[in-house]
Amino acid sequence: MTATTATSTTRATPVGGAVAAMALCVALLISAEFMPVSLLTPIAQDLHATPGQAGQAISISGLFAVLASLVIAPLAGRFDRRRVLLAMTGLMLASVLLIVFAPSFPLLMVARALLGLAIGGFWSLSTATVLRLVPSEEVPKALGTLFLGNAVATAFAAPIGAYVGGHLGWRPVFGGLVPLVLITLFWQARALPAMPPQAAIPMSRLFSLLRRRYVSRGMLAVMLTFGGAFTAFTYFRPFLEGALGVDANQLSLLLLGLGLAGFIGTHFAGNFLQRGYLYPLLLILPLALAATTFALTAGAGLFWAVAATLVVWGTLNAAIPVCWSTWLARELVDEPEAGGGLMVASIQLAIMAGGGLGGHLLDAFGPSAPLWGGAVLLMLSTLLIRRGRHLRRPSHR
C-alpha cells in the first residue's frame, strides 16, 4: 500500500472516537502531571521530604517531557503512529501505578520521570496525528477537542485532588486514575487507525529554527512566561495553608475557582485574538499576572480577597497558552511540526525550572517566596516581549 493510499484510508475511517480518545488521554496526562500541586504537603509528610523537595516531582516530569518532545517526535516517523501513542499511554499507566505504591521519594521521582516521557511524547505528536486523522476543514474542531481535555483537567484535577487527598490520602487520588488510564488505553487501541510510518523529521530541524532570531526570542519569552507562572502555581498549596490556614475543603474550593476561571480566560482570549490583538495580549497578560501574583501575597489572611484574586489569576493564566499557540501558528507557518515540538520543549523546560526555583525559594524563605519569584520572571518576560515587533517573521513586520 502506498503512503497516499494509507493516508486516504486513514481519513476514510471514522475518527470522532479516535480524537475523543486522544482528548481523554490529554486530560489524564495533565491531571497526573499537576496533581501534586494540590498534594504537596501530604506527599512530603508521607515520604519524609520537604514541601520544596516534593515540588521537584513536577520538575522531574518536566525535564523528561523536554527530552521526549525533542527525541520521540523525530523517531516516531519510523513507526506506526498508533503504536507510538499506545506506548505513551502505557508509560502513563506504569507511572501512575508506581506512584500509588511508591515506598520512597526516589521511586516517586522515577515514576514522575516515566510520566514526563509520556507527556512530552504524546503532546509532541498530537497535532501531527490530528492532521493525519481528519480532513483539513475539520482540524480546528479536532484540535479544539484536544484542548478541551486540557481545560477540563486544569479546572478539576487540582480541586478533586485536594478534596479526595484530604479525606482519603494522596495515594487513592492517583489510584483513581488507574482505571481511567486503562479505559483510555483500551479505547485508543479500538479507535485509533493504523498510521504507517512517514518521513521522519530530523532533530536538526528543531534546533535550526532557533537560528531565526524571532523564534529564539519567542521561545525565551515563552520560557520566562510559563516559568514565572509555574514557579508560583506549583506552590499555591503551601502558600494558602500558611497564609490562610485553609483545610482540605477550603483548598479544594479555592483551586476549583481558579480552574473554572480558566474557561473564562480561554474564551475571552479567543475573542480578542480574532480582533487582531495578539501582540498586545502577549505583553499585557504576563504583566497583569505578575501584578495579580503580588496581590495574592498582599491579601494573605483575607480568605475572600485571596479567593477573588485566584479567580483573576486563573483567568489571566489560561489566556496565555492560547496566545502563544496563535503566535506559533502565525509566525512558524512553514514549520508547524518542528515548531510545535520546540514549543512543547520550551514549555516543559519552563515547568521544570519553575518547579525547581520555587521549591528552593519555599524551603529557604517561606511560602510567599515562590510567588514573588514567579512574579519577577513574569515581569522579565514583558521586558523581552515589548511591542512584539522582534517576535514577528521579517515578512510580517
Rank of each mutant, 00 (worst) to 15 (best):
G161V: 06
A128Q: 13
W123M: 12
H167D: 08
G166N: 01
G144I: 02
R171D: 03
V130M: 05
S136R: 14
A151F: 02
F147D: 07
L131Y: 14
P140D: 04
T145D: 03
L146V: 04
N150C: 11
V134M: 09
A157I: 12
E137Q: 09
Y163K: 15
S124W: 03
L131C: 13
G166A: 00
G149T: 07
A128L: 05
L148V: 10
W123L: 09
G165Q: 04
L168N: 08
W123H: 07
V130A: 07
G166R: 01
T127G: 14
V134S: 12
T129S: 12
V139H: 01
E138Y: 05
G121H: 02
A155P: 10
G149W: 00
L143R: 12
G161A: 13
V139Q: 02
I119V: 12
G165R: 05
A162K: 09
A157P: 14
G120Y: 01
T145M: 11
L125N: 10
K141P: 02
E138V: 08
V152C: 01
L133D: 01
W170Y: 08
G144C: 00
T154P: 10
L143H: 06
T129N: 06
I119G: 00
A153T: 14
G121M: 03
T127L: 15
T127C: 09
L125R: 10
E137G: 05
P135T: 15
S124V: 09
V164P: 13
S126C: 14
F147R: 09
G121F: 00
A155K: 05
L133V: 02
A153E: 12
G161M: 04
L146Q: 05
R171Q: 05
G120K: 02
T145G: 04
G169F: 07
T154Y: 07
P159L: 01
P159C: 01
V152Y: 01
N150K: 07
A162S: 06
A157K: 05
A155I: 05
I160K: 12
G149I: 03
G161K: 08
I160T: 15
A151V: 06
L148S: 07
L148I: 09
L168E: 09
A162Q: 04
A153S: 12
G144V: 01
V139I: 08
V139L: 00
L148T: 14
W170I: 00
